Computed example of a mutant assay.
Amino acid sequence: MVNSLNGKNILVVGAGGLLGSRLVKYLIDRDVNVVAVDLNLLTMKERLSKLGVDTGSSLLTCNELDITNETQVKRFFSSELQIDGIVNAAYPRNKTYGNKFFDVSLQSFNENLSLHLGSAFLLTQQAAAYFERNKTPLSLVNISSIYGVVAPKFDIYDNTNMTMPVEYATIKAAIQHLNKYVVSYIKDSRFRVNCISPGGIFDSQPEAFLSAYKAHTHGAGMLDVDEMMGSITYLLSDDSKFVTGQNIIIDDGFSI
């Protein structure tokens, strides 16, 4: 599967984050050309280096990009960019993100929708504009979530300080329909937009949460971020050349 990415140029947005950084490493280790962008160039390079990525590799180009900034994003896609695939793994949010439902103000809710869903719209729009200018095959993968598919299982948050943010669930559901809207609008099989919906990804959560979450799966519990790589690279590759507007759920049965 990954061999079909040979010779392709993949843009990873949010390359300094948990998923984005591991995806960069995964692709570089398989000799795929990567353009890695994030809000903070230095922080991104430090995280990639800690994963063992040679940030001076000829396969890797690193740039700073604020995907919530319309001027920056339009300028980036209007540059001498040559890409065949894009993965949007960015996760912009404000300082009050993650409050429990009754503690979320309208201002905070709207701001988080603007940051996360708004930037997903902007990136998808500009990817479509890039395709319209170049008319070469382009596959975009956005990141949704199981909580964009099913309602939260709030019992798994008992005995923890955690919750499932209402902004998160709203945004992740909207991303799936955004994908369908855009591919229906462009209506060209060479331009594909899909997403994956991961279940819980392990990131040092409390033991009470991990145990409760695992009880809702078929035994795997929280997944390692590397479990997402196969589905992402499938959607980027020519192996999925007529797959578009779709959502792949990766959750070991959590949403069943």
Rank of each mutant, 00 (worst) to 15 (best):
N159W: 06
N159L: 14
T160Q: 07
T160A: 06
N161T: 13
N161P: 00
N161A: 08
M162G: 02
T163G: 04
T163K: 05
T163L: 05
M164F: 06
M164I: 11
M164K: 13
M164C: 15
P165R: 02
P165V: 04
V166Q: 09
E167Y: 12
E167L: 04
E167I: 11
E167T: 14
Y168F: 14
Y168A: 05
Y168Q: 04
A169L: 06
A169Q: 12
T170V: 11
T170E: 07
I171T: 12
K172T: 10
A173C: 10
I175V: 15
Q176M: 12
H177K: 13
N179G: 13
K180T: 13
Y181H: 15
Y181P: 06
Y181I: 15
V182Y: 01
S184H: 14
S184G: 13
S184P: 00
S184M: 10
Y185M: 14
I186Y: 02
I186S: 00
K187N: 15
K187T: 08
K187C: 12
D188T: 06
D188F: 07
D188H: 09
D188M: 06
S189G: 01
S189W: 03
R190L: 14
R190I: 01
R190H: 13
R190M: 15
F191A: 06
R192Q: 02
R192C: 05
V193C: 13
N194M: 02
C195Q: 11
I196L: 05
S197D: 06
P198D: 06
P198R: 04
P198E: 01
G199L: 04
G199E: 03
G200R: 01
G200T: 02
I201C: 02
I201D: 00
F202E: 09
F202R: 10
F202L: 05
D203E: 13
S204M: 11
Q205C: 03
P206G: 07
P206A: 05
P206H: 07
E207C: 00
E207P: 01
A208C: 07
A208L: 02
A208R: 04
F209H: 11
F209I: 03
F209C: 07
F209L: 14
F209Q: 05
